[in-house]
Design a protein around this nucleic acid. Structure first.
Lengths: 210, 210
DNA sequence: TCATGTGAAGATTTTCACAGCG
DNA sequence: CGCTGTGAAAATCTTCACATGA
């Protein structure tokens, strides 16, 4: 890795490149240049090349990139080449949908325990996992190297979920609830409110024909 | 509206401000300055003020912003003050989760029809709606002013879903499937692959302690 | 020769700093 | 007086253009 700071936008594009490369690989392609890959990903070709330089040199001049080689390089760059243990708080519709998401387990993100605060849900089985009491996260996951927490509970319980996740040693939280949460400075929070994308779509569509 | 171009990042932040303002309103707050609102939203205060100037002047100098007034202004700026009819293709776990999302109907985004390509799903009732044949989108929604389509089908069916949505007159597509889709230039696509956020979280956490 | 890798230029976005106004 | 609204400066990100090297 050559630079200290890597733009957040670069990381998000890396995920797109990876997705498209996996798709091309399934189609049997072995080598691709930045130009056609850029078209497939709907970005500028030098953008791809620049993004890659943050992590090293992966291409061959005059030829392009080896597809599977680049896939491996990107997976390593993103640190998704090893397993990430996750826990989920809030086993409602959204939580269940995330749990059963096919891509999820295929990509080495493993949900090891699930939690809820609703007494009627605690004890139920969902996708082979028993729903545990959301107030007992720390003791349940102790010693299991869980670093990512997913909050899919209602807004009212998001802060409580966050506090219990932090207490259990989680360092990153993907927050699907429509509420801001407060956590210590060493914990990363990503906000993923479903509605926000609908808002921006509504805005974009309204602007289009004006 | 004073400017022609509005940064995409501004729109995403507007959604955050709106969410936080609604929260503050429920707590009974009537007036707020940019500084405390900025702290709550974890952004810079002048960022908020600058974002708002794209749409007009909403504050009172020396005082701050009227909370409910600003909520209305933001809702109008984002064009979410009127109803948006949506249709959904792919009634799997994710599709069902989106359909039953509480915030969804509360915010004037109404799913008027749902579709799937799986013969076993067609005819089923989900959230009070009958699952219709994904190849018959156009005839089913004809004349219903549907402008937003949601793709929550597997990657293999995403392109077919997109084509049928476009044919039905949809102008914006929220694509939750892990596949890029090709659509005419006047159709907006927003990619929302669930895995991408896990990737960027894995990346961020790996970088943190280095 | 051809496509990568990369400084430098350009475009965009964020932050500063303060004039302007209630 | 205090906070907004806003030009101008700073920071950041993207694109260009071409030297470089397989």
């Amino acid at each position: 890795m050559k630079q200290d700071h890597i733009p957040r936008a670069t990381i998000q594009r890396l995920a797109v490149y990876l997705q498209e490369l996996e798709h091309l690989q399934r189609d049997g392609l072995e080598v691709i240049a930045s130009e056609p890959l850029a078209r497939a990903c709907e970005v500028n070709a030098s953008q791809i090349r620049k993004d890659l330089t943050y992590f090293g040199e992966f291409g061959v001049r005059g030829v392009g990139y080896n597809v599977s080689g680049l896939i491996n390089a990107l997976a390593k760059a993103l640190s998704i080449d090893k397993q990430w243990n996750c826990i989920l708080v809030g086993v409602g519709n959204l939580g269940k949908a995330l749990l059963s998401h096919r891509e999820f387990s295929e990509h080495r993100f493993t949900v090891v325990s699930i939690f809820d605060f609703d007494p009627f849900r605690i004890g139920q089985m969902v996708m082979g996992l028993e729903v545990m009491d959301g107030n007992r996260i720390k003791e349940v996951v102790a010693g299991r190297d869980v670093r990512i927490g997913i909050i899919s509970s209602p807004a009212e319980r998001a802060q409580r979920a966050a506090a219990n996740l932090v207490e259990a040693g989680v360092k990153g939280i993907l927050n699907y609830s429509p509420a801001r949460i407060t956590v210590p400075g060493d914990v990363v929070v990503e906000y993923l409110d479903v509605m926000h994308y609908f808002y921006s779509m509504a805005f974009t569509l309204s602007r289009r024909n004006r």
